[in-house]
């Protein structure tokens, strides 16, 4: 399974990178488990979230899953491209399929790529 080592992961299958603001997305494992994503419900820019809080939903034909903030902070950007092409989450979950950018004020509980790979093995 494809797990980049340049970012950290949550047990809820989100990733967060170390940039400021940090970019947040869902993992390949999550995207594959969902099937084709047909809709992503994202928060408004400017909203403040706490680590672990549900900030949106990702929907496939088969199921709907909550998105949990991997860290606390302010949402400073959302990926508008997902509105027209939610399938970017399936085709490029670690790149063009990113969800939000977060100005982190409170770190959350995350793990490195090796730990995440072990979790999903």
């Amino acid at each position: 399974m494809d797990v980049p080592t340049d970012r950290r992961y949550t047990a809820e299958h989100e990733w967060i990178d170390a940039a400021d603001p940090a970019t947040v997305g869902v993992t390949r494992h999550a995207a594959d488990a969902l099937g084709d994503v047909v809709y992503v419900d994202l928060p408004e820019v400017g909203r403040t979230v706490t680590a672990g809080e549900s900030f949106g939903e990702v929907e496939s034909t088969k199921s709907v899953s909550d998105l949990y903030a991997p860290a606390g902070g302010e949402i400073v950007a959302v990926n508008d491209a997902l509105d027209a092409d939610p399938g970017l989450i399936n085709t490029d979950p670690y790149g063009d399929g990113w969800l939000v950018r977060l100005r982190v004020t409170e770190p959350g509980e995350t793990m490195d790529a090796d730990a995440y790979r072990a979790l999903t093995a």
Binding site: G35, D36, S60, T61, K62, G87, N90
Partner: peptide, 9 residues
């Protein structure tokens, strides 16, 4: 099988 590739396709 739940899907082979894309369930939408």
């Amino acid at each position: 099988p739940v899907r082979y590739g894309s369930d939408l396709a």
